[in-house]
Design a protein around this nucleic acid. Structure first.
Lengths: 210, 210
DNA sequence: GTCTATACAGTGATAGAC
DNA sequence: GTCTATCACTGTATAGAC
């Protein structure tokens, strides 16, 4: 980050969080040492430990830092009063792709998986503070459509399985095969996204034929 | 593994691979040191390095070791001549769930993601030696159904996005939230699997309504 | 709040005797 | 093939001066 302006207190914390988020994304959790983080921030390790009690706490701060933006975006969509339930669901799914593929939180998902195995605390907080609220917001939109008669009645866990699965895998794939030079050929975001959204909506509106 | 019988040469290698696979699954890649592996195998580090040139090579051996069983299972299904394309696809998808959720290879997917970021070589070999053959086999089944007239014509990448997404995410979720005591409530394999398979087949057989 | 200096456990990996 | 012993290094984390 490099200290170029007068930034003190909380600003410094945010700076550290953003810098270390980049490093975590680039080199993984274990691949990112406190020394490297300190160096990238232009301070020493000791100073870094003054701001964060340890590596685990710093990582949690990085993840948490990204929650809010993603959740408020979804919240905003869920609260719109103009559009139909279908349009809102489409917008919500697009937002999920945007979040998981492009934002730091989303791109960190493979990392969060890695760290969650080591620290169950991280797993629990990630689930209750991010996944559950996110699914609750999405469910509000779906449920509204169901009561509307727009959507078929569906099982909650089942539909989330089908919605989040492809999104998460795409994010995971793009991270793990980031070294491929034909990455976008193998994993074209927009194309896969649009097909997925159409499939989901096709399913939710389909007349039962079984 | 502990040496209880006369096992020499290649047997010893396999023993090490199986032991270290367990450790990798339990503690992650960075969380598993060569010392711990050696100790668990009842040998010293130096002996371990006699069998494997390094940690990375050992890990690749673990992953590769699991390929074959999974691929031959799928190969067997694709080559059946009796059942309809639909039944074969159902069997193949069930097998994929079985592989990814229960077998070491599948359960290692979060790990493979972690290691692939660090070693592009691993990413490349995993893709060409496992993912591509697997998708080719699955495509053979689908394509047969399409020529049959059983299935609609679908885009290859698109359908793989919808098929593998939920499976991979389920595997990832179950690993990262393994510490939850209500794991099976949140992520019930059989139920999610059956719903997913029905959804895929419903989609592939659906009359176009768009 | 930041620094210098350091403690100290653990890492992957190797040399050379048996 | 396995051992003992050791390498050079990095990891997280802390003490205490400024």
């Amino acid at each position: 980050m490099q200290v170029t302006e007068e930034n003190s207190g909380a600003d410094r914390r945010v700076g550290i969080i953003e810098t270390s988020t980049e490093l975590f994304l680039k080199n993984g959790y274990s691949g990112t040492s406190m020394s490297k983080i300190a160096a990238a921030c232009g301070i020493t390790k000791a100073s870094l430990y003054h701001h964060f009690a340890g590596k685990e706490e710093l990582f949690v701060a990085c993840v948490t830092h990204g929650y809010s933006a993603a959740l408020v975006a979804l919240e905003e969509i869920a609260s719109r009063s103009g559009p139909t339930a279908e349009d809102k669901l489409r917008a919500a799914l697009s937002a999920l792709y945007e979040t998981i593929i492009s934002s730091p939180v989303g791109r960190m998902s493979p990392l969060i998986a890695e760290v969650s195995r080591m620290f169950p605390t991280v797993a629990r907080s990630f689930h209750t503070e991010y996944i559950e609220p996110q699914q609750a917001l999405l469910w509000r939109i779906i449920d509204q459509g169901v009561e509307n008669g727009t959507f078929l009645k569906v099982d909650e866990r089942q539909i989330f399985h089908l919605i989040f699965g492809p999104i998460v895998m795409l994010s995971l794939s793009r991270e793990m095969f980031a070294s491929f030079d034909d990455l976008d050929t193998h994993f074209p975001v927009l194309q896969l996204r649009d097909g997925h959204i159409d499939a989901i909506l096709g399913m939710m509106k389909a007349k039962s034929d079984a």
